[in-house]
Design a protein around this nucleic acid. Structure first.
Length: 946
RNA sequence: GCCGUGGUGGCGGAAUUGGUAUACGCGUACGACUCAGAAUCGUAUCCCGCAAGGGUUGAGAGUUCGAAUCUCUCCCACGGCACCA
């Protein structure tokens, strides 16, 4: 009997539908599992073979859980508001509502061919007024709690989509949808206070069972940093800066304000800074130029620093009490921190570049520490450390470009001249003294101090760890005049004049390599922590430890800042949920009363964006004009709509109770289903997942939901590329339609192949040749029914149990590729045996049912089992049957495989050794020697070491 | 640049409390069936070598009886962020 897949698939799809086989209910008797796909945006393109991959995975998972007796929620719906749907409608001259309906019908038809176990009675659609009533309801709750507010701060505006966008809608500096560079535009906006939840969203990430890269992306996006706000006195007022490195304050040699800084235009206590300076026009011109630049233009200039000094005003460094200049520069962002920074060029790369460009002083206040890790002198942790000051003197030859190196005799070290600074002496004095004593040169002069570096190493002659704060000097010799040195000094080392190239190879300690680099390249910014230098009373302390103490001493305070911005929530477009607010001249922004929800999106002919910053809804006068719910006077409706992400920020809750018209979700159903146990999707690492977490936490706070996180586990979906390795797209003409694949190979082969392609999270290219292999497997499965006999086949027993274990565990952990592989291994063994017992075949069919639901249902019926296999119980395995009584044990000699022996599982080491020695290859490898050691791992290996 | 993830045959990939590296599938070659082809089935398939044997998991070192797996250094690919002080 041939395998007629298309009629089998059609037959069972119709029967399942007719019987409502996958209807879900809140069965309190059973343990629940909620398995969810990121619901699709029904685009006009229809599905390509990449889309169903995640749906197949959740389908396999949910089918297995159903067979295990769980109450399963596995729903599907449509995320249909937003720009793509509207743009599609504009292009095709249809109404978005109509376009969405068509697209959904097309998607559903395509999905129907794949045999999914969705409960379609729970289907939802974000554009359905019965649905978006609750999206509006959540907005009103946010408004009530002060978490939705109006603002007219400049926002990102896409000139092509003609709407404002949130930071999350940008791809770098361009609109994520259309690739147009965004501009800044001042518009009245609704903004959601997502920053209020930044800390909780960050902290709660740790407990989530999500892929690390997604958690990391969220951490990056939230961008929490701990720092200090420190006031700097400027004339009769002050400027507060934000810094994460208050420990470097002694090195702050100038101040920088962002061009947008408010103090430039209005002073806190008096005059605006702009009016107090001598070069007002110059500064104003710079500010104007900076504001006119798009972010793209700034990026195109690279990171080149520009800026202009405020002439006639200075700030006081609160640590050093020095007067320092103030600059306006666009490398400081107005939107982060306080819009003002203290610049520490020695310890910040940007400040360093700016200081170089403006020729500003660079003052080192932190010494970098080098811990010696190469011999000799490797630092020995745990042993006491002797801390002292020292000097490194780089002495230049009087004529040639060579420097003095010391080759030590009792240790294999090469160094510059060094010395310890003794009590009562300065480093400078020490340098001159050491030169006389160690080298005898008479006419040395200190040319400059290059910096300070810390070296932590083991001093071999002194047998002690040393932490040396080394002051680095460059020294010049006027001539070769020289006196004799005391013999014991001269005996310690040999003096060599070396070129810089030779020195780079010659110098042993890292601190001396560092000194050489300083000499050759000049200072480089060091952004790490270390010992403080040039920092008054804090000199010598560890910068990390002194950080907050120093903050307090200069009148600063510890603060936390985020990169995350509040969520710009208004869109000047038609196809979105109306924001349920009424503007009244007397009462301001007033909430639409709950009983008046939903505020329906009016049906109109003209829905093109206006481009003026006004929503197309503004033109619909009889919709806009209304009365104030508070005072009854004339009022107008808010005409902006919500962003695409609104409806998807809570849809997973609606699936729990999709037809409830008096609550978003009933407490009973929420308790039953929450949280989503497994959430599957790709891409939306930041936007959707961060918005949904935000709304969920808010709903938790107002007691609508009972869990603090919406998605307990997240499985990341790797995409499917076209056969040519590129992304599938209409433009490239490489799209593969699942309908065609199903017609050729059947839904079961399609499903099994997508699961077999590779690890679920991997991006892999489609292969028509490979799917043929999976189709062959199903053909052989079909033929396998001829091999069924009544009695179990003993030889297959361990494999049956291994396969039950393996496939079950692999489905749980989303390792579908190895589950399918195990099924292939099993079928290979069955064919080799030429027969399989009825019970064994029954178990095998059930294991495959989640992957290939149609063919297994048919074979199940032919086996004489009662409908439906998908309600049958998941097979159990017996650990006692996992292994056979004997096992293949590999014999190694000195770690090399020399053969293998078959041993009973309970064989002891003596037996194993005796058997192993019988192998000729083993005897040959031992060459007559008796093994001095035997490593025996029962069931695995016996290793003889001679 | 910073952070994250990974690197195994011609290809997708398997193997992790350290214990036979390359399972399973694709591709390829040869053979069978056939007038012939398609389909199907069988055999082979990491590299060097006639063989015995030796080598191999991005490179190099280390720990171990034994390393794809653990440690260190480096290289490369992918993803996120990026003038965020």
């Amino acid at each position: 009997m041939a395998y007629d897949r298309s009629s089998i698939e059609k037959k069972w799809q119709e029967r399942w539908e007719r019987d409502g086989l996958y209807r879900t209910n809140e069965d309190a008797e059973k343990e629940k599992v909620y398995v969810l796909d990121m619901f699709p945006y029904p685009s006009g393109e229809g599905l390509h073979v990449g889309h169903p991959k995640g749906y197949i995975a959740t389908d396999v998972f949910s089918r297995k859980k159903r067979m295990q007796g769980f109450s399963v929620l596995h729903p599907m719906g449509w995320d249909a508001f937003g720009l793509p749907a509207e743009n599609f409608a504009l292009k095709n001259k249809t109404h978005p509502r109509q376009a969405v309906e068509q697209n959904i019908a097309r998607f559903k038809a395509q999905l129907a061919h794949l045999g999914f176990d969705y409960d379609w009675t729970r289907e939802i659609n974000t554009t359905d007024p019965a649905y978006y009533k609750w999206t509006q309801w959540i907005f009103l709750k946010l408004f009530e709690q002060g978490l939705a507010y109006q603002s007219d701060e400049p926002i990102n505006w896409c000139p092509s989509c003609m709407t404002g966008l949130a930071n999350e809608d940008l791809d770098g500096n361009v609109c994520e949808r259309c690739g147009t560079p965004v501009i800044k535009k001042r518009l009245p906006q609704w903004v959601l206070k997502i920053t209020e939840y930044a800390d909780r969203m960050l902290d709660d990430l740790n407990a989530l069972n999500w892929p690390e890269h997604i958690k990391e992306a969220q951490r990056n996006w939230i961008g929490r940093s701990e720092g200090a706000e420190i006031p700097f006195v400027v004339g009769d007022g002050s400027v507060t800066v934000f810094t994460t490195r208050p420990d470097t304050i002694f090195g702050a040699t100038y101040l920088v304000l962002a061009p947008e800084h408010p103090l430039l235009r209005q002073g806190p206590t008096g005059q605006a800074l702009l009016e107090r300076i001598a070069n007002t026009r110059e500064v104003e011109a710079y500010i104007k130029a900076a504001e006119a630049k798009t972010e793209i233009e700034r990026g195109a200039e690279g990171k080149k620093k520009t800026g202009v000094k405020l002439e006639g005003v200075t700030a006081t460094n609160p640590a050093t009490k020095e007067e320092i200049p103030i600059y306006v520069a666009d490398y400081v962002l107005g939107s982060y921190g306080t819009g003002a920074i203290m610049a520490v060029p020695a310890h910040d790369e940007r400040d360093f570049e700016f200081a170089r460009a403006m020729d500003l002083p660079i003052r080192q206040v932190i010494a970098q520490r080098y811990t010696q890790t190469t011999q000799p002198g490797v630092y020995r942790p745990g042993e006491p450390i002797l801390e002292k000051n020292g000097v490194i003197a780089i002495i230049r030859h009087w004529k040639e470009k060579k420097y003095l190196g010391l080759k030590w005799k009792d240790v294999t070290w090469g160094t510059f001249l060094t010395g310890g600074v003794e009590e009562g002496m300065t480093p400078e004095e020490t340098v001159l003294k050491e030169i006389r004593e160690e080298t005898g040169y008479l006419h040395a002069r200190i040319a400059g101090k290059l910096g300070v570096v810390d070296g932590l190493f083991y001093h071999v002659p002194k047998q002690k760890n040393q932490l040396v704060h080394a002051h680095i000097f460059s020294v010049e010799l006027a001539d070769d005049a020289r006196e004799d040195v005391v013999p014991e000094e001269g005996a310690k080392h040999e003096l060599l004049w070396l070129t810089p190239d030779k020195l780079a190879k010659f110098l042993t300690p890292e601190t001396h390599q560092h000194s050489l680099r300083l000499l050759q390249n000049g200072p480089a910014p060091y952004t790490g922590t270390g010992s403080l230098v040039n920092s008054g009373e804090y000199t010598g302390r560890n910068s990390d430890e002194a950080k907050w103490e120093m903050t307090g001493a200069v009148g600063g305070k510890k603060v936390v800042r985020y990169k995350l911005r509040d969520w710009v929530f208004s869109r000047q477009r038609y196809w979105g949920e109306p924001i349920p607010i009424i503007h009244c001249e007397k009462d301001g922004a007033v909430a639409v009363p709950y009983e008046d929800l939903p505020v329906q999106l009016p049906d109109v002919d003209q829905y093109e964006p206006t481009g003026t910053g006004e929503s197309p809804l503004a033109a619909i006068h009889d919709w806009v004009n209304t009365s104030c719910p508070k005072c009854g006077g004339p009022a107008t409706r808010e005409t902006n709509t919500m962003p695409q992400w609104a409806g998807s920020s809570w849809y997973y809750l609606r699936f729990m109770d999709p037809h409830n018209d008096h609550e978003l979700v009933s407490a009973k159903n929420e308790k039953h289903w929450a949280p989503v146990d497994v959430y599957v999707g790709g891409d939306h690492a930041v936007r959707h997942l961060i918005y949904a977490r935000f709304w969920h936490k808010f709903l938790y706070d107002i007691a609508v939901v009972s869990t603090s996180e919406p998605f307990a586990r997240l499985e990341f979906l790797g995409f499917i590329l076209a056969e040519d390795g590129r992304k599938m797209s209409k433009r490239l003409g490489n799209v593969i339609n699942p309908d065609d694949v199903v017609a050729q190979y059947g839904a079961d082969a399609f499903r099994a192949y997508e699961m077999f392609m590779g690890p679920f999270e991997n991006t892999t290219a489609w292969s028509m040749a490979s799917i043929a292999g999976t189709a062959r497997f199903l053909e052989r499965l079909w033929a396998g029914q001829e091999l069924v006999v009544d009695a179990p086949v003993a030889a297959l027993d361990p494999l049956v149990h291994q396969t039950i274990k393996k496939i079950g565990e692999d489905i749980e952990t989303f390792k579908f590729n190895t589950a399918v592989s195990q099924a292939m291994i099993f079928l290979n063994a069955v064919e080799k045996e030429g027969k399989i017992g009825h019970e064994q075949w029954s178990a095998f069919l059930r294991l495959l049912a989640p992957f290939a639901p149609h063919i297994t249902e048919e074979l199940w019926e032919r086996l004489g089992e009662p409908y439906s296999i998908h309600l049958a119980s998941w097979p159990a395995y017996d650990p006692a049957h996992l292994v056979s009584d004997t096992a293949e044990v590999v014999v190694q000699v000195a770690g090399r495989k020399r053969g293998s022996i078959r041993l009973p599982n309970e064989a002891g080491e003596a037996d194993a050794l005796a058997e192993a020695l019988k192998l000729p290859a083993v005897a040959a490898a031992l060459a007559g020697k008796t093994p001095s050691r035997v490593v025996y791992v029962p069931g695995r290996i016996v290793n003889l070491v001679a």
